[in-house]
Amino acid sequence: MTRSFLIETRNEGDVRILALKGFLDAHTAPRFEAAIEEELRGGRSRLVMDCSGLDYISSAGLGVFMTFVDEARGAGGDIKLASIQPKVYQIFDVLGFPALFDIQPTVEEAVARFGSAAGEG
């Protein structure tokens, strides 16, 4: 059983938006890990995850956020989560992510949280 997972990236000023689509599980997590790593290596540390298309996330997927959040913050950025479907949010919630991550209802709000520099790009 292979379920697809796609990442689409775009810029919103100097904020990088990663739109996650499909199933982020142990099978697809390494790909996601590589994608975030590439962003950070490329000097892009202001990241917003658009989770509106994310249908499922496993612990391995959540582990990717844990892996890079300190690095992103250390580089002056952050990994913010936005637009999470209720079913998926429940997992984030149950595992205590809201205490550690900035989770916003919409991508726009998440981008705005990075402050005014975001719009100058």
């Binding site: 099978h27 612990s59 997927g61 990717v64 844990m66």
Partner: peptide, 25 residues
Amino acid sequence: RAFSASIDPEEIARLLMLTLSGRWT
């Protein structure tokens, strides 16, 4: 499922650590 699809020890180890760090933040 992921373990059964991998024969690379490092990949297995990385998946385990991803999962553990994600599950318990």
